[in-house]
Simulated scan of single mutants.
Amino acid sequence: MSTKKVVLAFVLLLGIASCKVNPFTGQKVLNFYPNSQIFPMAFSQYDEFIGQNEVLENSAEARMISKVGQRISSAAERWLSANGYPGYLKDYRWEYNLVKDDQINAWCMPGGKIVFYTGILPVCQGETGVAVVMGHEVAHALADHGAQRMSAGTLQQLGAVAGNIAIQDEESRNMFNQAYGIGSSVGVMLPFSRSHETEADRIGLQIMAIAGYNPDEAAELWKRMKASAGGNTPLEFLSTHPSNDTRIANLIQWAPLARQEAQKFGVTSFQ
């Protein structure tokens, strides 16, 4: 069998064998990195980051980050258990750290390792705002977005390899590489990333409501995020994230649905 056929067969095999169901959407997703492979790597990278940065452990803000994280992850576990996914989180090792840094950002690694930067706290304006961000970051972990991005990146690389094998002419190969790099990024990888952000917004809104936090605050937080950006944001189709206006409109639309979901768990009042 030729190298080209081997690569294409491998791509096809990965596509067939790597579908996993997202419990929150019921849809199959591309993911051929099992937790047993990706979690230890993520935990190691997280520990290295924590060791190289200033972690605030005993401040009121740090304790709030931990408190909100525990409430959000517990709400996620309640939802998963109630919807037929008991044990889904058995390999997760939740950790919530506040790091001294002026960046207006927070992030989560596979397996539940979360960092908030102090720079985002003024935008959050308190515990409920933190819950909006925490819900979003926890949702990334729950939906295996990190593993999905790695899977998509692997397929993108294999596609480039297959094209270079198939095209013998050097000039044509160079043209292919240029077109493939731009096309696969703008046409596939960036929309893929934006879909993850939108999905994390929706899942996070639902989980924060189950945890007892007001989902209406999500749109308000993103209005503040928009104001803090001062208009310095890329065009949506060239960004890994939806525009602030898109997110705000989505969150306003989804907030009543999140309240309805929370009511199934006996939550009728919100902080």
Rank of each mutant, 00 (worst) to 15 (best):
M64S: 09
M64L: 10
M64D: 06
V68M: 11
I72D: 02
I72K: 01
S73R: 06
S73E: 09
S73W: 02
S73Q: 10
A76G: 01
E77S: 15
R78V: 13
R78I: 13
W79N: 01
L80T: 06
L80H: 10
A82C: 03
N83V: 12
G84Q: 00
G84M: 02
Y85V: 02
P86E: 02
G87K: 09
G87C: 13
L89K: 08
K90Q: 03
K90G: 01
D91M: 01
D91H: 00
Y92R: 01
Y92P: 00
R93C: 01
W94A: 00
N97I: 00
L98G: 00
V99E: 09
V99L: 08
K100D: 09
D101G: 11
D101K: 10
D102F: 09
D102Y: 08
Q103I: 12
N105T: 10
N105V: 13
N105A: 12
A106E: 08
A106F: 11
W107L: 05
C108I: 04
C108V: 11
C108D: 11
M109A: 15
M109K: 14
P110S: 00
G112K: 00
K113G: 10
I114N: 08
I114S: 07
I114P: 01
F116C: 10
Y117L: 02
T118S: 04
G119M: 11
L121Y: 09
P122F: 05
V123D: 06
C124Y: 08
C124A: 10
Q125M: 10
G126Y: 09
E127Q: 15
G129Y: 07
V130K: 00
V132S: 05
M134N: 07
H136Q: 15
V138M: 15
A139H: 12
H140F: 09
H140P: 10
A141H: 02
L142K: 02
A143S: 12
A143M: 14
A143G: 08
D144F: 06
D144G: 07
D144K: 02
G146V: 08
A147G: 13
A147V: 08
A147H: 04
Q148S: 14
Q148E: 14
R149Y: 11
M150H: 13
M150P: 08
M150E: 08
G153S: 03
G153K: 02
T154C: 07
L155R: 06
Q157M: 11
L158R: 04
L158H: 05
L158S: 14
A160W: 03
V161P: 11
